Measured scan of single mutants.
Amino acid sequence: YFCHCCSVEIVPRLPDYICPRCESGFIEEL
């Protein structure tokens, strides 16, 4: 997954599918 807020590849935090770095939901499956 790619976080558009951090502009990095991340492993989303489940079950909410949010970025573990910034806690944004603005992520996209690569």
Results as ranks from 00 to 15, higher is better:
G25T: 05
F2Y: 13
C3Y: 01
P20E: 08
S7N: 13
C3G: 00
F26E: 15
R13K: 13
H4R: 13
S7K: 02
H4S: 10
I18W: 05
P12Y: 01
E23A: 06
S7H: 00
C6S: 03
I27T: 09
Y1F: 11
R21I: 05
F26W: 15
C22P: 00
I18S: 12
F26A: 15
H4V: 04
R13T: 13
I18D: 12
F2T: 12
C19M: 00
S24E: 08
C3D: 01
E29W: 03
E28L: 02
L30G: 15
Y1V: 09
C19H: 00
C5F: 08
Y17M: 15
E28S: 12
V11P: 06
F2W: 14
P15R: 05
C5Q: 13
P20M: 02
D16P: 04
P20Y: 04
C22T: 00
L14Y: 12
H4L: 08
E23Q: 06
F2Q: 05
R13A: 09
V11N: 13
V11C: 14
S7Q: 05
R21S: 10
V8L: 13
E9T: 09
I18C: 05
E29L: 10
C6T: 02
R13G: 06
C3T: 02
L30V: 15
C6Q: 05
C22A: 00
P15I: 15
D16C: 05
Y1A: 04
I27G: 11
F26L: 15
C3N: 01
I10W: 04
Y1S: 05
F26Y: 08
L14C: 07
V8G: 06
C3S: 01
V8W: 11
R13D: 11
L30T: 12
C22H: 07
F2D: 02
H4D: 07
E29G: 12
P20C: 06
C3H: 01
S24M: 04
C5E: 10
S7Y: 07
D16V: 03
L14K: 12
P20W: 02
E28P: 06
S24C: 07
C22D: 02
Y17C: 09
I18P: 04
C19S: 00
I27V: 08
Y1M: 06
D16T: 10
V8M: 11
V8A: 12
G25M: 13
L14S: 08
E29M: 04
V11I: 09
P12W: 00
R21K: 15
C5G: 11
L30A: 12
R21V: 03
I10P: 09
Y1W: 03
G25Q: 05
G25V: 10
E29R: 09
C6K: 04
C5D: 15
D16E: 14
C19P: 00
C22E: 00
E9G: 08
C5P: 03
E9A: 14
H4N: 14
P12D: 09
S24Y: 02
F26P: 15
C3F: 00
R13C: 04
E9C: 03
E9W: 09
V8H: 13
L30K: 15
I10A: 05
C6I: 01
C19K: 01
C6F: 01
F2E: 06
I18T: 10
S7G: 08
H4E: 04
R13Q: 12
C3E: 01
R21G: 06
L14T: 11
F26S: 15
S7F: 08
R13F: 06
G25S: 13
R21D: 07
Y1R: 02
C5W: 11
I10R: 06
I27W: 01
C6E: 03
I18G: 09
C5L: 07
E9P: 08
I18N: 03
L14P: 07
R21W: 06
C19I: 00
H4M: 08
V11K: 11
I10V: 05
C5Y: 08
C3L: 01
Y1K: 11
C5T: 14
F26C: 06
P12Q: 03
C6Y: 02
I10Y: 09
R13W: 07
F26Q: 15
R21L: 05
C3R: 01
I18M: 11
S7V: 09
Y17I: 11
I10Q: 04
P12N: 04
Y1C: 04
F2A: 00
P12H: 03
C6W: 00
L14E: 14
I10T: 10
S7T: 14
V8C: 13
S24K: 12
C6M: 01
S7I: 05
E9I: 04
S24Q: 09
F26R: 15
F2M: 08
P20V: 02
P12T: 03
C6G: 05
F2R: 08
C5M: 15
P20S: 07
I27E: 06
P15L: 10
P15C: 01
C3A: 03
E23L: 08
P15D: 11
V11H: 11
H4Y: 05
S24L: 06
F2C: 04
I27Q: 09
V8P: 03
L14I: 02
V11T: 14
V8K: 09
C19T: 00
S24A: 08
P12A: 10
C6N: 03
E23D: 01
E29P: 14
C19R: 00
V8R: 09
V11S: 12
C19E: 02
P20G: 07
S7W: 04
Y17T: 14
I18Q: 11
L14W: 11
D16H: 08
L30S: 14
H4P: 13
S7M: 09
E28A: 14
G25A: 14
C22R: 01
C19Y: 00
R13H: 11
H4G: 07
C3P: 01
F2H: 12
V8Q: 12
D16Y: 02
Y1H: 06
P12G: 04
I18E: 09
